[in-house]
Design a binder for these strands. Structure first.
Length: 470
RNA sequence: GGUCCCAUCGUCUAGUGGCCUAGGACGCUGGCCUCUCACGCCGGAAACACGGGUUCGAGUCCCGUUGGGAUCACCA
């Protein structure tokens, strides 16, 4: 029996959970769930100057919203400094790492020189074979890379990738303040946490041979790697704020459903034949690295929007009614803490479901259902509330007074009879009524609008519209 | 610049040597449905980057070119 699969998502808390990170987390989660493995959340906060607790919270918030639950953690690397130091000390004792006394300025100068001369930007090995410490300087610890041979990364997505060891730099594993750097912590933790598959963005592919050398130095087996292609913006540059919303929670604010984002993100780089819309269970069942593409993908907000509309259409009005409440409050459509008849709201939502691409849109459309007083769009008022429609509206108002039941079907009968009596088309009545009810010219079917509004509000709005004409 | 990765419609992609007259989806677009707007349905335009090989046969395999991306920190 093979060992249980263990994967991890290891963000650094120097910003919110963004689209790219979320996708990495998602693929890890999918793979773990698919293979009955363990999903670990590890916070890589060794850059203490840029990491904050607020961002840790923000990342956790984003993961929870997306429904990416983890089995272990969150672990924080800052809680584990002693472990990293002991590993580093071990390497120094074995001669696989050494103290380096070169100053950052010195290194910077040499880098610039190398750049100018077109040579590879690599540490020159000045302190590699130093016998005596240099007094008065706090050294860093560098890992001694092999200078010959190749290191091969057997990647689940990219295939076999080979690097010349002479290209590998003697990387710093301990800073002069004795804190560990990324390449040390990531290897030590992956070893310590028994990670079997490292799934991350392919911007890490170039780090991988160095890390493999570290595994070798520690005498630990190398995990399997899967390097996901990057997500790009519309200009094919790495996705950034310039391209619009990049933080996951920004999509919450915009009125997206988490399952829509998840579905979109997973289809960015992964496919399952021609299928576009997946349930979470299907995703878990179908996921495989074999179907992950190698090429970077451009983030396409339009398709995400379409997916969101699909998920909204397929959500129950009851669920949507609950989800839209915060948006109603934020939009000032209802007062915070104001009571709401959720059954009624669900009916209103039901009429709007297939014409709202986001919860934000849905909330805004709900405005005319909920508000006591509607506001007219001038153009709509001018076009439909006029001499021509006044008598029709008045006739409808009168006919409505005696309607047995304020339902779609009964209302349709009333409309038909009014229209017939006046010798006009349905739309000649429907549009003025629509403006009277909603203030504008776009809405759900007019019988549905009236049914949801109810008799009292309908009559009231009819009266007001008639007054507007005079 | 060195190293590494990548390359099918505008975008996400199917394609694992003959099933490809290159399929689906978003977007765009023509029409239908219709009380408006949507939803839905039917149709259309739209791609194998280029050049060499290999093969009876190449979008699919190999090489090169071009183009894009990543990375080269006492960041992660």
């Amino acid at each position: 029996m093979t060992d249980k699969i263990r994967v991890r998502f290891a963000p650094s808390p120097t910003g919110h959970l963004h689209i790219g990170g979320a996708r990495t987390a998602l693929f890890n989660w999918l793979f773990a769930r698919r293979s009955n493995g363990t999903f670990i959340l590890r916070i890589e906060d060794t850059d203490t100057t840029r990491s904050t607790d607020e961002y840790i919270e923000a990342i956790i918030e984003g993961m929870k919203w997306l429904g990416l639950d983890w089995d272990e953690g969150p672990f924080r690397q800052t809680d584990r400094f002693d472990i990293y130091r002991s590993y580093a000390d071990k390497l120094v004792k074995e001669g696989r790492a050494y103290y380096c006394y070169c100053s950052p300025e010195e290194l910077e100068t040499r880098r610039k020189e190398s750049m100018a001369q077109g040579r590879p930007l690599k540490y020159n090995g000045k302190c590699r074979d130093l016998k005596e410490p240099v007094p008065g300087i706090q050294p860093v610890v560098r890992f001694r890379m092999p200078v010959e041979g190749q290191t091969v990364v057997d990647d689940l997505i990219k295939g076999r990738v080979s690097f010349e060891n002479e290209q590998l730099d003697d990387l710093i594993i301990l800073r002069s303040d004795n804190t560990p750097t990324y390449n040390l912590t990531v290897v030590v933790d992956d070893v310590d946490m028994k990670i079997t598959h490292v799934i991350r963005g392919d911007d890490h592919l170039n780090n991988t041979p160095k890390q493999i050398q570290l595994y070798n130095a520690f005498g630990y087996p190398v995990p399997k790697f899967a390097h996901l292609p990057m997500i790009l913006g519309s200009d094919k540059a790495r996705l950034s704020k310039r391209h619009g919303a990049t933080s996951v929670m920004a999509y919450y604010e915009l009125g997206y459903l988490p399952e829509a984002l998840v579905n979109y993100l997973v289809r960015l780089g992964w496919s399952y034949g021609d299928q576009e819309v997946f349930t979470r269970d299907e995703l878990v069942e179908y996921f495989s690295f074999e179907n992950v593409g190698k090429a970077a993908a451009v983030f396409n907000p339009e398709k995400l929007l379409w997916l969101n509309s699909q998920y909204i259409i397929n959500s129950s009005p009851e669920r949507l009614a609950g989800l839209v409440m915060p948006f109603l409050e934020k939009g000032g459509i209802i007062e915070k803490g104001q009571g709401m008849d959720m059954r009624w709201l669900s009916r209103a939502v039901g009429t709007l479901r297939e014409r709202s691409k986001t919860l934000l849109e849905l909330a805004n459309s709900l405005r005319y259902f909920i508000a006591e007083e509607i506001e007219f769009i001038e153009k709509a008022k001018d076009k439909f509330l006029n001499e021509k429609s006044r008598d029709l509206l008045a006739a409808l108002k009168e006919a409505l007074a005696s309607v047995p039941e304020f339902s779609h079907d009964e209302l349709e009968k009333v409309f038909k009879s009014v229209v017939e009596k006046h010798g006009v088309k349905l739309k000649d009545l429907a549009q003025p009524v629509r403006v009277a009810m909603t203030g504008g010219t776009e809405s759900p079917g007019i019988f549905d609008v009236l049914e949801v509004l109810g008799k009292e509000k309908t009559i009231g709005r009819l009266e007001r519209a008639i007054k507007e004409i005079v």
